[in-house]
Simulated scan of single mutants.
Amino acid sequence: MDISDARNRIVATADELYNAKGIQAVGMDELRTAAGVSLKKLYQEFPSKGSIVMAVLERRHQSWTEGLDATVRRAPTPREQLLAIFDYLGQWFCQSTFRGCGFINSFAELGAISPEVAEYARKHKESFQEYVASLAAGAGAPGYLAPQLAILAEGAQTTAAIAGTPNAATQARQAAEVLIDAALNTK
């Protein structure tokens, strides 16, 4: 196994374990064993647990961004692109591994003790808000719509995680339709 393979395996394994159990509940020995690497190799790749957490957050950000954008790009109109955000959420919420937003979970678990995690979570959420704003602008919507849709999407993520069902995506999509149509008709 070369260095990039080991690194990728560690990050993927950490992501799975952190998602399933929480970050603080997973020790380095458990991660090492699950990833199939030596403790020496683990520390060669990552000097601290904090560096692994940041690599996991970077991986999640990339996965989220690419998945969301792929779903949005398939939508035929600007209005449908805005609604595709909620379609993406619905697909995600149906996955057996869905445990809520990894950034919200990481922030809740470590935000008070890790400024680096808190800042990365904020930047991730900010990038999502900017993405929604660009879609709303492309639809010709007033500026107030994007923050409303972003909050609706964030609330759906939390609700789906707590309720344990994907219904929040459908409900949020229906609310988004009302907001979008009102915004586009009252410009």
Results as ranks from 00 to 15, higher is better:
Val37Asn: 02
Met28Gly: 08
Ala141Asp: 06
Ser48Asn: 09
Ser106Val: 13
Lys187Gly: 14
Arg32Trp: 04
Ala182Trp: 01
Gly22Val: 08
Ala25Tyr: 04
Leu184Tyr: 09
Tyr131Met: 01
Ala34Glu: 05
Val53Phe: 08
Arg173Tyr: 06
Trp64Ala: 03
Asn105Phe: 00
Leu83Thr: 00
Gly36Arg: 03
Cys101Phe: 01
Arg99Ile: 03
Asp5Tyr: 15
Thr13Asn: 13
Ser106Thr: 14
Phe128Met: 09
Ala35Lys: 08
Ser106Pro: 06
Val132Thr: 04
Val11Ser: 01
Leu152Asn: 10
Lys41Val: 15
Tyr18Ser: 05
Trp92Lys: 14
Ala150Asn: 00
Arg122Ala: 10
Gly138His: 02
Ala12Leu: 13
Gln91Arg: 12
Gln24Leu: 07
Phe93Arg: 02
Ala160Lys: 06
Ala121Val: 00
Ile151Lys: 15
Arg74Met: 12
Trp64Glu: 09
Gln24Glu: 00
Ala153His: 07
Gln44Glu: 13
Arg99Leu: 05
Gln91Asp: 14
Ile85Leu: 11
Leu179Ser: 03
Gly22Glu: 14
Glu177Val: 05
Gln157Met: 13
Gly140Glu: 07
Ile113Leu: 14
Pro47Phe: 14
Gln91Glu: 15
Tyr131Asp: 07
Phe93Ala: 02
Phe107His: 09
Arg73His: 12
Asn185Asp: 14
Glu130Val: 06
Ala172Lys: 00
Asn8Cys: 06
Leu83Gln: 03
Leu152Cys: 05
Lys49Gln: 13
Met54Lys: 10
Gly164Trp: 06
Ala136Lys: 00
Arg32Glu: 09
Ile23Tyr: 12
Lys21Ser: 13
Thr71Met: 11
Ile23Phe: 07
Leu31Glu: 02
Phe86Gln: 01
Val56Leu: 01
Leu83Asp: 04
His124Ser: 09
Leu110Glu: 08
Ser106Arg: 10
Leu83Val: 03
Gln148Gly: 05
Ala108Met: 15
Phe86His: 06
Phe98Val: 01
Ser114Asn: 06
Ala108Ile: 08
Leu135Arg: 14
Gly155Asn: 01
Trp92Asn: 03
Leu68Val: 12
Phe46Glu: 02
Phe93His: 03
Gly140Phe: 07
Ala14Glu: 12
Pro78Glu: 13
Met28Glu: 12
Tyr131Ala: 02
Leu57Val: 03
Leu31Tyr: 10
Ala183His: 01
Met54His: 12
Glu45Lys: 07
Arg9Asp: 05
Arg60Phe: 11
Glu126Met: 11
Leu152Phe: 08
His124Gly: 05
Ala137Met: 11
Thr170Trp: 08
Asp2Phe: 10
Gln81Cys: 04
Asn19Thr: 12
Ala108Gln: 15
Ile151Leu: 15
Pro47Arg: 08
Gly138Thr: 14
Glu109Ala: 03
Leu68Lys: 04
Glu116Gly: 11
Leu179Arg: 09
Gln95Asp: 06
Leu149Gly: 00
Arg122Ile: 11
Asp5Asn: 13
Ala34Ser: 02
Leu184Phe: 04
Ala25Thr: 03
Asp15Gly: 02
Ile85Gly: 04
Ile180Leu: 10
Gly50Arg: 01
Arg173Asp: 02
Leu82Ala: 00
Leu31Pro: 02
Arg122Gln: 15
Lys125Leu: 15
